[in-house]
């Protein structure tokens, strides 16, 4: 019998859903084993009953629940709780769900600041009041799913990788545990490391030195070339079975989309420590918090202190 699958999306771009499509052919095998019972991106499903007769949001029971996106509204919170209630195994799909993702950059500001900016100060909007009726209230900040309900499996990445989604689902369906890597991006990075000390940072658009066509293990570590790379503080796995991290493959430094390696870790603190030790002037680093915790703002980013 096919396993029932429910999917919800909160604050998200939809990229992680596309990732599911990107699984490609194996998806067809997978789809045979599941029965999608709830998935707003695919099909209409009324939360308050087909006629709106219910007073509380309800979704069908499922073996597997997927949530993409972080929690931004009170409705998300309730839905997350409902998903948790109804799904045996709950999966956070993508870095937004796992760590807040890009939307959690909003956590750098207070809700009031945000609203003022968006609804009053932004040049493209009419200077009206804040929306209040007919839309769910905002939460005080963006939360990762795991901050609100227990999450069984995290599939980080922005977007997450098809391989990982397929792997995780297959494992779950077959009753095998699915675990994430505890290594960092550097573990999978093939570049050469010679000497870390680098006194000035280079802008991304300058582009690193490498020999086109040559294997990546002949390119020097991008950090050593002066590009801020989040590799040491970012969980590995983005490269999938190929092994080489996705950004590196594109001659770009790691953005950190796979999030921190452990729940307790704070990539900003870890990277700032390492970078200052090798002699980099910490003041040189632009937009510290957003640079290192770009994808993990839930619980790690806070509004700047007014002094």
């Amino acid at each position: 019998m096919a396993a029932r699958l429910a999917e919800e999306w909160f604050t998200i771009c939809g990229g992680c859903e596309v990732t599911i499509l990107d699984i490609g052919e194996p998806l067809l095998d997978l789809l045979e084993k599941v029965q999608i019972v709830h998935m707003p991106v695919l099909m209409d499903h009324k939360l308050f009953g087909q006629t709106g007769e219910k007073t509380e949001m309800e979704i069908p029971e499922a073996e597997v629940g997927l949530i993409s996106g972080g929690i931004r509204t009170e409705e998300h919170k309730l839905l997350a709780q409902e998903m948790r209630r109804k799904c045996k195994t709950l999966i956070a799909l993508g870095s937004c769900a796992c760590y807040g993702g890009i939307p959690a950059l909003a956590n750098l500001y207070s809700t009031e600041e945000l609203l003022t900016k968006v609804y009053r100060e932004s040049v493209t909007t009419d200077k009206n009041g804040f929306p209040h009726e007919d839309v769910p209230a905002l939460t005080d900040r963006v939360y990762a799913i795991s901050e609100v309900v227990k999450v069984d499996v995290m599939l980080p990445g922005c977007p997450t990788t098809p391989e990982m989604v397929a792997g995780a689902l297959t494992a779950l369906l077959e009753g095998r545990p699915f675990t994430l890597s505890t290594k960092s991006v550097c573990d999978e990075c093939p570049t050469i490391r010679e000497k870390k000390a680098s006194s000035t940072l280079r802008r991304r658009l300058e582009g690193p030195e490498f020999t086109p066509g040559a294997p990546l293990n002949q390119m020097r570590c991008l950090m050593e070339q002066g590009f801020l790379c989040n590799g040491p503080a970012t969980r590995s796995g983005c490269g999938g079975s190929d092994g080489t991290p996705r950004c590196i493959r594109a001659y770009m430094p790691c953005e950190g989309c796979f999030g921190p390696i452990s729940e307790k870790a704070n990539p900003m603190v870890d990277m700032m420590g390492a970078l200052s030790t090798i002699g980099l002037d910490p003041k040189q680093i632009p937009d510290r918090a957003a640079t290192f915790n770009r994808f993990s703002g839930a619980g790690r980013l806070r509004p700047a202190v007014k002094r």
């Binding site: 900003m268 700032m272 420590g273 910490p282 003041k283 510290r288 806070r302 509004p303 700047a304 202190v305």
Partner: peptide
């Protein structure tokens, strides 16, 4: 001296944590 460099970083990051 390494500690001094890290201390600069720590001081900067305190802002990010809302600590004086």
């Amino acid at each position: 001296l390494k500690a001094e460099r890290r201390a600069e970083a720590i001081t900067l990051m305190l802002q990010d944590f809302g600590i004086e």
